[in-house]
Nucleic acid binder design. Structure first.
Length: 496
RNA sequence: GGUACUGUGGCCGAGCGGUCGAGGCGCAGCUCUGCAAAAGCUGAUACACCGGUUCGAAUCCGGUCAGUACCUCCA
């Protein structure tokens, strides 16, 4: 395992803390996954990308990570005050299909999007509906400990009682007294003893398709419960990192903590991490705001707010250029900037593999090694990808200079060069998950282009500028960019 | 209304008391090049406002203004 010290901003303590796994080299990571009742949008992608980087970097550091990310396929009500319909069931009714068809459809869609953005699959992806028995068991534990009560086939968590012994609201900075006053009034809330209580089990209303038997009759589990249950089942009563979007901090994560403590007496999570929201043109991207962009729309550009399509890698890179805990405000311009910036970085990675080392001193050794170390240190500083990207650019300058100078590496020792090649590639590909997208895997095109470049080379040798420019201009119009190198060799690339 | 957080150059964004002030994009000049593109070098422009603490603040404290989020479905 690497000797690097990793610091994580813990949203529970609101401090940056040295990361010390409970059972090194093993790390348990739990992230709240999507509720699969409709398409994931770009904001969701940002969250899952954040924890993809966490997952990848922990592995880079040598940890053995068990990454659990759930699929919420039942229990998430339209209205989180524990009233209203189950989201999945509602969508099923609207589309006139089975709830499990809704689940299947959007789970597949979610996976497709994850694959597109090179977000790695988790180690375990459990679903709420697959853990009803465990959820019932946890409710029984909480009931036994006196922190829940039953009313008309519903089970509610008794927040006031809980608060007498344990602090409630520490994660989100709530004070129970204020919650009791300010939580809005709702019709049909009579079953609850207090406004701040939340449902552990909801009685199935008439006509519901999704329901399960329980000691309290037919019903469905509460939304917050699944995460408590599944994290405990796969990661234990206490595990290392729990992540999710900022908007889940309250009430979801707060309730999760209460449930775990209520069931087994101690807090479940060492380090809480929350990724911040994605804004578009200054407004939070949200399903209900109507400014959410679907990943597919981003790719095709088929959206009123977009001027053209942007690739998954462009989006991924754009997200990496900010810190996960900051709000990120994107626009057409920032997408465009990212597109260009990414190309520069990916090109450097490609060039690096084409360089030849010769022994010409090692006066740059310190500088290059320092830059490589800096990238790692940046990531160790609460996964600061924005800083790490900047440090990477310091290296691309050297790489480009060498590349332009007959592709010969000078000024660093062989050991440093080999380290640079290895680390640069690992960071770009394995940690950042960035790949070259315009891979010329079309051999026919490759052959044709080589022929054209050859003919053009001859034209240039004959100083037939009219012909060589015509070739370049017309290929450009067709989306193929020709670049003349200093050594007389030309190369081409496809325009996105 | 309550609770958090944020406010950095033309744009996006690091920065968490003291390496005279990341990085990307854009802009200007230069180098290379038949020209162009790419790349390299150089440069300009910043810390919302008003006070305070400090030898020293973008960075800490107080206030003002503005924005965002959560409190109600969302990652």
């Amino acid at each position: 395992m690497s000797s690097h010290k990793l610091y994580i901003y813990n949203s529970y303590t609101r401090k940056k803390e040295l990361f010390e796994p409970i059972h090194a080299p093993f790390v348990g990571l739990y992230v709240c996954g999507p509720t699969v009742y409709n398409d994931v949008h770009l904001g969701n992608v940002r969250t899952f990308l954040t924890f993809d980087i966490v997952f990848r970097f922990l592995k880079y550091l040598g940890y053995q990570v068990r990454y659990v990310r759930n699929i919420t396929d039942v229990g998430h009500l339209v209205d989180d005050a524990d009233e209203g319909e189950d989201k999945v069931e509602k969508m099923a009714r609207l589309q006139k299909i089975e709830p499990m068809e809704v689940v299947q459809k959007y789970t597949i869609g979610f996976h497709n999007v994850m694959r597109l953005f090179k977000i790695l699959p988790p180690s375990i992806e459990p679903s709420a509906s697959g853990h009803i028995i465990e959820q019932i068991e946890m409710i029984e534990d909480i009931l036994k400990n006196g922190y829940a009560y039953e009313v008309n086939g519903n089970i509610y968590f008794d927040v006031v009682k809980f608060n007498e012994k344990y602090p409630y609201g520490e994660l989100s900075g709530r004070v129970l007294e204020e919650l009791l006053e300010t939580t809005r009034d709702l019709d049909g809330q009579d079953d609850k003893r207090n406004k701040a209580d939340f449902a552990l089990w909801k009685k199935a209303e008439k006509g519901h398709i999704m329901k399960w038997n329980s000691p309290w009759g037919e019903g469905i589990p509460g939304w917050h419960l699944e995460c408590s249950v599944m994290s405990t089942k796969y990661l234990g009563h206490e595990f290392d990192i729990h992540g999710g979007g900022m908007d889940l901090k309250f009430p979801h994560h707060e309730s999760e903590i209460a449930q775990n403590i209520g069931a087994c007496g101690h807090a479940p999570v060492r380090y809480w991490m929350h990724s911040n929201m994605l804004n578009f043109n200054g407004k939070k991207m949200s399903k209900s705001e109507g400014n959410s962009i679907l990943p597919m729309q981003m790719l095709s550009g088929n959206h009123p707010l977009l001027d053209k399509g942007y690739s998954p890698m462009t989006v991924r890179f754009l997200f990496l250029q900010s810190h996960y805990s900051s709000e990120l405000d994107i626009s057409i311009k920032s997408l465009h900037d990212a597109e260009i910036g990414l190309k520069k970085l990916v090109n450097a990675a490609k060039y690096l593999s084409e360089l030849t080392w010769i022994d010409k001193g090692s006066y740059l050794d310190d500088e290059v090694n320092k830059s490589i170390d800096q990238v790692i240190n940046d990531l160790c500083d609460d996964f600061n990808t924005a800083k790490a990207v900047a440090s990477l650019y310091a290296l691309t300058t050297h790489i480009n200079t060498w590349y332009n100078d007959k592709k010969i590496v000078a000024g660093i020792s062989k050991i440093t060069f080999e380290r640079l090649q290895k680390e640069f590639a690992i960071i770009i590909q394995d940690v950042f998950g960035l790949e070259e997208e315009t891979a010329n895997d079309n051999t026919a095109l490759e052959a044709a282009m080589n022929l054209i470049l050859d003919l053009r080379k001859q034209a240039r040798a004959d100083k037939n500028w009219a012909l060589s420019d015509k070739i370049r201009d017309e290929l450009k119009a067709a989306g193929i960019i020709i670049k003349d190198g200093k050594d007389g060799q030309a190369s081409y690339e496809l325009e996105n």
